[in-house]
């Protein structure tokens, strides 16, 4: 014989009001989840696009700088003063663009596959 009445069928006024309030809050949440969802999506998209921008910038610049420095270093060792620097910088530029292409057009990893499916 539990003397505590079950909250469900408790006839008193405040319990009714409390349940009503809880119901409206739940309804409210149910009704419009979209706006904050969209705002979250927008910030995620800008975050991801900016991170892509940062990566592209540094991969591109690093590619060229590494090419130039390697060329300059080989010149020092082999004594072929300006030639290797120019050739290696050209290769560095190609490597830079290749890095950018690999990053932008074909992001690696399984996540890339569904990326491909989502925006061909």
């Amino acid at each position: 014989m539990s003397d505590k009445p079950n909250p469900q069928d408790d006839p008193s006024e405040e319990a009714m009001k409390a349940r009503l309030a809880a119901l409206t809050v739940a309804l409210e949440k149910q009704k419009d989840p979209k706006p904050d969802q969209e705002a979250l999506e927008a910030t995620q998209r800008t975050g991801r696009a900016m991170s892509l921008g940062f990566r592209v910038l540094s991969e591109f610049v690093a590619g060229i700088i590494v090419g130039a420095v390697m060329g300059w270093q080989f010149d020092e060792w082999l004594g072929t003063k300006p030639v290797l620097l120019i050739v290696m910088t050209a290769f560095g530029t190609i490597a830079g663009f290749w890095n950018v292409y690999r990053l932008a057009a074909a992001p690696t990893g399984p996540q890339a596959r569904d990326d491909k499916r989502s925006n061909p």
Binding site: R48, A49, M50, L52, G53, F54, R55, V56, L57, F60, V61, G96, V100, A104
Partner: peptide, 12 residues
């Protein structure tokens, strides 16, 4: 995303 790639290359 591609707009940012273009911007990054120009900035690069």
């Amino acid at each position: 995303g591609r707009a940012f790639i273009g911007a990054a290359l120009a900035e690069g």
